[in-house]
Amino acid sequence: MTTPAPTAAPAPAESTPRRRSRRLAGAGAVVRRRLLVAVPILAATSAGMFALGAASPIDPAQQYAGAAAFTTTEENLAQIRANWGVDDPLPVQYLRWVGNLLQGDLGWSTSRHEPVTSVLAARAGWTLLLVGAALALVLVASLLLGTLAAYRRGGWFDRALRATAYAVQSMPVFWIGLAAIALFALTLGWLPAGGLTDITATGTDPADVARHLILPVGVLAVAQLPWFVLFIRDAVADSLRDDHVLAARARGLPGRTVLFGHALRTALLPFLTLVGTHLPELIGGAVLVETVFSLPGLGAVTVQAALGSDFPLLAATTLATTVVVLAANLGTDLAYAAADPRVRLDD
């Protein structure tokens, strides 16, 4: 990645830390306030999950029995429901769940047959790795491609990029995944078609895992890229006509510095918001990518939990997602404050 030469920096370097720390002065209070707000949000989310569960007509015991449900007596199923306490009144179930949660016990997953904590422990890491790597790739690729397209607006690169972006945006992510497998795994034979490691591997060797993650991360990134690329392209194209950019050009600064240091900089601010709001969509895409590439992440179990009325697990994954989204929003706001001198946190 190209970066502007430090010599072209107009602001004195030594003043930077001081100014930034002043700008983030209210950060502690903001974090505390957000945490206070997060508690009722999380309580409402989890209560909502349980209310939905009560309204769901799905019988978790029948779901658990699977095909055996057709040969299992009603008495047998009732006994299993009683063992789980899923026929108890909703407030009782909810209070029991909250009580256990406060003791650090997330409950028992009826669809996975293991404690919810061990489901999360075994799987959340892979989902986070997938989402994190894809997000990083999306950020870098969209900043680079979008800025270059904006620089020569209307040129062949810009037109090709936009056409591709619209085409990719219209493709379902699982389709991109299957196409990528067909091309890179079957036709070219460069990369494995799925799984987390080689099928006969005995452990999770990082290099092996990395090789298996190239396609899933790439597919997830490509599927999410169009939004970000088009956004950056428009924003940079707009800001290239802003006064401060024109002024920088007039001062005779090198084109690269103007493009990345001035135009892109202004365009970055709304981009941060876009990242925050698109995070849930990225997680949603990860669910599909995990299915296509047979990765043992949280995606498949969340679907399974929803189908099986497994509320302890659903509540946990929902809460985890809510926490991530809240944290992303907080991060976005803090980043805004750091990047834009006009934004104050202590209002």
Binding site: M1, P4, P10, A11, L137, V140, A210, R211, G261
Partner: peptide, 28 residues
């Protein structure tokens, strides 16, 4: 201004390079 941008962009680039290095070292 340029310095801060450059630092931030560098940080992102380093983070991404790390991720890519993790995903790209495909020694079988």
């Amino acid at each position: 201004m340029g310095t801060r941008v450059s630092k931030r962009v560098t940080a992102v680039a380093v983070a991404v390079a790390g991720v890519l290095a993790l995903t790209a070292c495909s020694s079988p």
